[in-house]
Design a binder for these strands. Sequence first.
DNA 1: GACATCCATAACTCATGGCTATCACAAGGG
DNA 2: CCCTTGTGATAGCCATGAGTTATGGATGTC
Lengths: 304, 304
Amino acid sequence: MDVHGRDLRYFAAVADELNFTRAAERLYVSQPALSKQIRMLEKQLGAELFVRDRRSVRLTAVGEALLPHARGVLAAWQAAQTAVEEARAAERDTLVVGMSTSPGRGLLPALRTRLMSRHPAARPVLRQVNWADPTAGLADGSSDVAFVWLPLPDDERYRSVVVASEPRLVALPPGHPLTARAAADPEGAVDFRDLADEPFLALPPEAGPLRDYWLALDARDGRAPRIGGVVASAEETHEAVANGQGVVLLATGNAPLIVRDGVTAVPVRGITPSRLAVAARRDDERALVRAYLAAARAVGAAEV
Amino acid sequence: MDVHGRDLRYFAAVADELNFTRAAERLYVSQPALSKQIRMLEKQLGAELFVRDRRSVRLTAVGEALLPHARGVLAAWQAAQTAVEEARAAERDTLVVGMSTSPGRGLLPALRTRLMSRHPAARPVLRQVNWADPTAGLADGSSDVAFVWLPLPDDERYRSVVVASEPRLVALPPGHPLTARAAADPEGAVDFRDLADEPFLALPPEAGPLRDYWLALDARDGRAPRIGGVVASAEETHEAVANGQGVVLLATGNAPLIVRDGVTAVPVRGITPSRLAVAARRDDERALVRAYLAAARAVGAAEV
DNA sequence: GACATCCATAACTCATGGCTATCACAAGGG
DNA sequence: CCCTTGTGATAGCCATGAGTTATGGATGTC
């Protein structure tokens, strides 16, 4: 039914040489092993492939019929191996870059350029990941590296390089009283305690510590926030704010995604700045991953 | 380097089912065996072929790349097997009919017709064999059946069916004295003792008992014949007789091959008739061979 | 919470494919 | 004429391959 590729290779070699001893040498096996395998193949096919006439070896009609097909099978397998090798190479050179929202700030082209100056064959592929996954695909392996907001859950599994640290803003619906207060402020900002009691839009519970972070839990002295709704994308967030479901904290760089149709964003005093980082799985030592982190380090700040 | 066809078959089955358990059933192997073989294949290729994600199995990029090639290899091997099967069938249906000189007497078409009425797929192939081999190729396997002159050397290895028994003639050169004597004889014949002392043309020594037979050794009372030359074909024989190198005994049916350009042939009294037979190797039980002998029996006389 | 599904692992058996040593036979060569 | 050389087949041995059954562990389902 099936055949081992080796047997076809052996058969072709003997057919080439018409001499078992020489064929065995060419195949780096002993002559008896070769003889035995050919006999096995003949037995399997139910037909003699060679006539071993005391002084000479030659193909039978059946052998003659098999030879081109045997070569065909071997060639087809050769092609298969090549295809696998190419796929492996493509996989090795592909770096999946996960992100929840576009990191902006000119980071992607800058990192791409630096990466490819070191690894010309590299092909960074961008991948959009739902906000529900704060690791932007690192956790389930769907990304190799990712733009993430610190802090990450399950911190020790990842290493990260901060590439931007910016004050956080609050997005306010049209006509919200705090808009006027910010306008009157010398810095154009508001204090967090002035908005702590507003209903907040929150990330899904799966987001873990990141959800808490964007609710500024650490600045609330243990008092629970009011949750006005759950959002998992920039578009949802804009809609929810515009509809007055609640306010939401934003990284400065993400403000343009939310601020339109009367929604405004103003700086908030009294909370820590947001930190955007490039991260990878700590145990992922692949060259391309290391190179991307190195590029991020060159572009951004210190590793955490 | 090489791959076992089975592994590709297993791989294709799992790729089809995307489920090891079901694929294993389809392949009639246990699930662990299948799992192990796929792992082996992956190890050999140095790349994962499937992602076994808790609940599902799916192809990796490499697996995706391999799949069409794997099917290609399997198809190529399938074609190879078909080719072998066809060659085997052709070989099974081919009957090599050996002969030294054409048996004539309408035997070949008669046997061919009878053979093919029983075995429509049969393809009798005629093969001319040098006179030096009295078995006309049976001995070395180059013929399956053969037209031979009895007695055969190594008798017990063959079985034969006599298809013609005819008086032997002697071929005489132009102007030989015996020609006149025969003309004067009431039967137009000569007695063997009148030509026993002539130089005789003989078959090569390898012909064994057949050589002796055509020298009519049994009719010489132990006296050795004079050998005028050795001949191994009808053409040589004619030439040698015409040149006066010697005389030679002939089967009646073969006279037309020799008698021309003044060479004559006259019946000889006092020697046994020649017996033309169809023979085969005794241990050759193939249907086609048996059928050819049966056809010969129907056409000719009794089996020896 | 018991059960079913599904893939992986463990421990075992037996055939396969390799090796070395040796034989049998034909063909040349001193 | 014997002896060497070349060639394929055979014998006996051993490691590995490929299969088995039994079991584990994770994940949904009723």
